[in-house]
Design a protein around this nucleic acid. Structure first.
Lengths: 158, 158
DNA sequence: GTGATTGCAAATCGTTTGCATTCAG
DNA sequence: CTGAATGCAAACGATTTGCAATCAC
């Protein structure tokens, strides 16, 4: 399920920022906006090559740099020093990642301010930035985990 | 300033877990416990080589695996996919890292539970883990930054 | 047409592995 | 003495860079 609104938004933002709209970039934006969550650079390449077979990994990285520089995509740090890239949807977002299907969902992290105050008191640091990710099981995977993996997975909640 | 209490604690925990106390490991533990905060593997190597010149980077990594496996050292994920390793001091700790001197100080992150509840409500995920790091200026670096280093860039707006 | 963009090959960087040597108990 | 631990060299995977060919405007 592609999300035309997001696709448009990203493409628009890129051209507004002075980047030309190329076939490679369109394919990459399509791959990202049509994914349910975070993708590695390699996964983005694979998906985007459906629309543009000669696309190279290098261009994926370069486009991701642009997109995350513009705040349109967020780089999610995974165990083992590799990354996943997910659409930035809300303002002050962080991601929660499903440990089973790797879906990444954004949530508002403003509650963090209380913690920041507490940390300032505890440590005396002047806080300038933070970095938060959560891990768990998304609703569909919880069901699958509960209703013993019979085989089907008929009722994927969204 | 070495911290004999911590050094003892780590060495003891390693031997208790069945790892022998070797010269390499002692040098590495010394480097970690005498540092004011997080160090990269390369930085640990450099420091430890004072006490043990023929030490190799591989052994640093292997020892860090053991130490973080035992929960004695925490691996801190930095921008650019590399890591820093810091002494784990309190139970449920996360680190706040000084952007200037890279000192890493641990704080209690229990306040996070409120946020976890909120995220559960927002997303329906069953949360199993989280990952939080903060960045800022430590007290000493704030002073140095305020008491303007005399010469340059006097009025950097933040 | 012209500068931006691309993609290949090769370089880089942090980290891990294979294996023969050395060390701790 | 014997298995655990070490360190070198080489492998590895993600990401970046040099450069000539290609594309968007």
């Amino acid at each position: 399920m592609p999300q035309p609104a997001h696709r448009q938004r990203l493409l628009r933002a890129m051209t507004d920022a002075g980047y030309s709209s190329t076939r490679s970039r369109r394919a990459i934006v399509d791959a990202i906006t049509s994914a349910p969550g975070g993708l590695t650079a390699a996964a983005i390449l694979e998906r985007a090559q459906n629309a543009h077979p000669s696309l190279g990994l290098v261009t994926v990285y370069r486009t991701l740099d642009i997109l995350s520089g513009l705040g349109l995509v967020r780089r999610i740090h995974m165990e083992g020093g590799c990354h996943t890239y997910a659409l930035a949807q809300c303002a002050h977002g962080h991601h929660i990642i499903c440990e089973r299907c790797h879906r990444a969902v954004e949530f508002e992290g403003c509650e963090l301010h209380a913690l920041e105050n507490s940390v300032t008191l505890q440590t005396g640091f002047r806080i300038t930035d933070h970095w938060l990710e959560m891990f768990g099981l998304c609703p569909s995977c919880q069901q699958e985990a509960d209703e013993v993996p019979a085989q089907s997975d008929c009722l994927a909640a969204d």
